[in-house]
Computed example of a mutant assay.
Amino acid sequence: MNDVFSMSYLSFGNTSKYIEQVDKTKGNLNMVAPNYFELKPQGTLKITSQCDPVFIRHMHERGITVVPFLSNHWDRGLGRAALAERTLLAGQCADFIAMNDLDGVNIDLENVTDADREAYTDFVRQLRERIPAPKEVSVAVAANPNGWTKGWHGSYDYAELAKYADYLLIMAYDESYTGGPEGPVAGYRWVERAIHYALMKGVPPEKIVLGIPFYGRYWKIGQAVGGIGISNKRVDELIGQYGGTVIFDDTAKSPRAVMTISGGSIPAPVAGKVLTPGTYHIWYENNDSIRAKLSLRRQYNLKGIGSWSLGQENPSLWQSYRFWIQ
């Protein structure tokens, strides 16, 4: 087990799949955040079908804490409904955690705005009041390397959230995004600036967890909209199947694959889509780019590392992960 805090989100699968994904990490995680908590339309707690006491027991036997994440799946109306019902919702979360041997909650409400900033902070404050230590209350916050104060980025009052949360997980990914120009998902300097912003806002380094992506994005030449998500593991498989070249961008410290699928090739399914013939540019993460980002944890003496999401990585990562994170 690492001395440094290391967690990952679990979002795609069921209990048996989740246990398999955790075991592939070779003891490198000390917390997992499964997708057990969602929201009903009125903003109250909804427990997903994935929630399973068998999984919780298996993780505890491995010395791994289980901290479900509460998601609104980017639905602003749902996020605002939750904040409007925050007193009730905080109580529901606390009660369910206590009754089901869970180890806390990770709040992942996204795409509310600066208008919701105070309510968001107050929700986290109420959770901390209702959930006794040492159980965890943590918040996933948007990376904000540009210091934006409006819109989605403005909903997170880093300094105030850090007063109540055990840590803030900086979602240091989606520098490039669906519909945008091609580029790295988490370029090194962009990630470092996101850390600088949190520190500048007064968040202690021991309350910062750096979130890294286990996925990339692809752009097809000539196609109007690109930046579709693809797991790192699937990128490696496609390069093996179709060939192509991988260039490591020294500035972004990120790999970029160029791959051509010919007309007669076997179809390439990716997350419910099929890649049609053509040339693709794929920015993703490999062991070299992840190792570079893990060095930032050491450089800034951060609490630890989080990742979105388990099962999307190339399993070879875990062979050296313990050494890199330390």
Rank of each mutant, 00 (worst) to 15 (best):
R297K: 13
K201L: 03
R125T: 10
G187Q: 04
D166T: 06
W148P: 00
A98T: 09
Y120H: 13
E136D: 10
G147Q: 05
R125Q: 14
A82D: 04
H153Q: 12
I266Q: 14
L39P: 02
I247T: 15
A81C: 02
L78M: 10
G263Y: 10
M31C: 15
I19D: 01
E182G: 12
I247Y: 08
Y36G: 06
V225G: 01
A271M: 15
T44V: 05
I221P: 00
A84Y: 02
K207F: 06
E206M: 00
V139M: 10
E313S: 08
T87W: 01
Q319H: 02
Q42H: 11
N301V: 11
I325P: 00
I282E: 03
I56C: 05
Y215A: 02
A292G: 02
R234V: 14
Q126M: 15
P184W: 07
D3W: 02
P204K: 04
G304D: 07
K163S: 00
D236S: 13
V124H: 09
F37Q: 06
W190E: 04
V235G: 03
I325V: 15
A257H: 10
V185Q: 07
I212M: 07
E129P: 02
A165V: 01
L70T: 03
P53D: 07
R117F: 09
A81V: 00
F323P: 00
E110Y: 07
G187C: 06
D23Y: 02
G264W: 12
M259H: 09
N2P: 15
G278A: 05
P277N: 03
R128S: 14
E20R: 04
K26D: 15
L88C: 09
G272C: 08
A162V: 08
A162H: 04
W190K: 12
G211D: 05
R62Y: 08
V270F: 12
Q50W: 02
S138R: 03
N100H: 15
Y177E: 06
T87F: 07
P41S: 14
G240A: 03
